[in-house]
Design a protein around this nucleic acid. Structure first.
Lengths: 240, 240
DNA sequence: CGGACCATTGAAAGCCGTCAAAACAAGTGG
DNA sequence: CCACTTGTTTTGACGGCTTTCAATGGTCCG
C-alpha cells in the first residue's frame, strides 16, 4: 500500500504543499493501518489522553464539546480526507470529542509516526502548519457567524461553507450528512429554530432536505442573499 | 540587538519549543526593525495584501472583522509578545483587520525573513505550528462561548481567559485595556448588555472597572461560578 | 471651555429559546 | 405483512434574554 491508497488525503495535503518522496515514505508507514468504523461512533473523547491524530480516509466527522447543562457545540466538521486530533502535538488530553457522522475509514497515526514527522519531516510539518492555519480561518469565520449573524443567516453560511468545501476538495457532489440537530449544534441555535429556517429555504427552492441529509440546490442565489464570501476557503498555493 | 532584546517574544516561543542558536540567528535578522505605534492604530487591513506577520514586542492588539451592517466581531486578542498575520503563509490578502488597543512596539517580519524561515528553519516552523494550534484552541473556546453560553457568562469567560493568559505569560498584573464596546465585539453582545453585566460583577466585588480598563479582582470566585476550565490555556511542553 | 470618547440607564420590541406533542421514516424481529 | 422501536422532522404556544433606540453623564485632554 502506498500513497496512491490515500488519494483524498494526498490531495488534501497537496492543496497546501507538494509532497516529495521523503514525505511519501512517511505516508507509506501508515499503510495497512486503516480501520472501518460505523456512523455516530466516538473516535476521540474530550479529556482523554490522545496519542496521535486520526485521518479520515473516507466519511464525515465532527469535533464537539458538551457543556455541563447538556448543551453541545460543534467546533469543526471534518470532510473525507481531513484530519482530527492534531492538537495532540500540544496537549496531553483531547480538548474536544470527535464523532463520526457517517461510516468512515480511518487511520490512527501512532506516536512513532508522529515523532518521525516532527524530527525528520520538515515539509510535512509545514503542511501541518498550513492546514492548521486554514482551520483557524474556518474557526474564525464561525466566530463571526455565531457572534454577529442572525439565526437563518448562520444556517445558510454553514451550508454554503460545506458546499464550497466539497467543491474545492473535489468530493463528489452529494447530500451533506447532517441532521437538523447537528446544524443546530454548529450554529448555536435550537432544533426548532433550525427546522423553520430549513423549511423557509426549502420553500424558496434553495435547498432540498431529507432525514439526515441536506442538499444545496442553488448556492449562487443563497450566497448572494447572505453575502457569503468564500475567500477564507481558497488558500493561495505559495510554493517555496 | 540580539534575542535578549525580545524577552517576551522569546518567552512566548519557548513556551512551545526551546530555541537553539540557528533560531536565535533568525531573530537577530529582525534586529533594529522595531517601530512604535499609538493606540487604536490599524496594523493590517482586511482584504489588503499582507507581506508578512507582525510581532507585538509590547502592547495589546485585536484582530477583527467588520460586517456589511457595520457590526464588528473581534476574532483574537493579542497580548504583548504575540504575533499577528501568520496566515500570510497561506493567503495573499489578510482575512481580517488588526488594530492596536494600546500604544505598541512592533516588528514587521519581511518577506525575506519569512522565506528563510520556511526554507531553513524547521524548528521555527514547528514553533509556528504549535502557536497556531494554541490559537485554534482559543478560537474553539470562543466558539463554545458564542454558541452556547449566556451573555453574562461570555463576558466572564473572556475576562477569565485574558487574566489567565496574562498570568501564564508572566505579564505584569495590570488592567485589561478593553472598552466595554471591545468586550461587546468579542462576545457578540451589545454595549448596553455588557455594561449591565460589568456592573453586576463589579457590585459583587469580582472585578473593578474604569474607562478602557478592567481588572479581575477575584478570578477564583468568578471561575467557580462560571465553570471556567483553563485547560486550553495550558499547553503541554513536549520536547523532541 | 469645548470636544471626543466612554460609560450609564430606561423603556419597548423582537428574535430565538423552551417545552410539549405528534407525525414521519427506517430498520428489526416476529 | 405487521408490530415495535428508535431516530429524525414538524409544528404551536408562550416566555424571556437580549437588542434596539434614545438620552444623559463622566472623564480626559487639548
Amino acid at each position: 500500500m502506498n500513497l496512491d491508497s490515500f488519494p483524498l488525503v494526498r490531495g488534501r495535503f497537496e492543496r497546501f504543499l507538494p509532497l516529495m518522496p521523503p514525505e511519501v515514505a512517511w505516508f507509506d508507514a501508515l499503510a495497512g493501518k486503516s480501520e472501518r468504523v460505523g456512523a455516530r461512533v466516538t473516535l476521540l473523547s474530550e479529556g482523554r489522553a490522545c496519542d496521535g491524530p486520526v485521518i479520515l480516509l473516507d466519511g464525515w466527522a465532527i469535533g464537539h464539546r458538551v457543556l455541563p447543562d447538556g448543551g453541545r457545540q460543534v467546533l469543526r466538521i471534518g470532510l473525507p480526507g481531513e484530519l482530527f486530533g492534531a492538537e495532540c502535538l500540544l496537549y496531553r488530553r483531547s480538548l474536544y470529542s470527535v464523532q463520526t457522522l457517517t461510516a468512515c475509514s480511518i487511520v490512527r497515526v501512532g506516536e512513532q509516526e508522529l515523532v518521525s514527522m516532527r524530527s525528520v519531516q520538515p515539509r510535512l510539518m509545514e503542511a501541518f502548519l498550513l492546514m492548521m492555519t486554514f482551520e483557524r480561518a474556518i474557526a474564525h469565520e464561525w466566530t463571526v457567524s455565531l457572534g454577529r449573524r442572525a439565526g437563518w443567516s448562520r444556517v445558510a453560511h454553514l451550508l454554503l461553507e460545506l458546499d464550497e468545501r466539497c467543491r474545492v476538495s473535489g468530493i463528489a457532489r452529494r447530500a451533506l450528512p447532517l441532521t437538523q440537530q447537528d446544524i443546530a449544534d454548529c450554529t448555536g441555535l435550537t432544533l426548532g429554530y433550525v427546522n423553520r429556517a430549513i423549511r423557509h429555504m426549502r420553500q424558496r427552492g434553495l435547498i432540498e432536505s431529507r432525514p439526515s441529509e441536506i442538499v444545496v440546490l442553488d448556492s449562487e442565489a443563497l450566497a448572494r442573499n447572505e453575502g457569503f464570501q468564500p475567500r477564507y476557503l481558497h488558500p493561495c498555493h505559495k510554493v517555496v
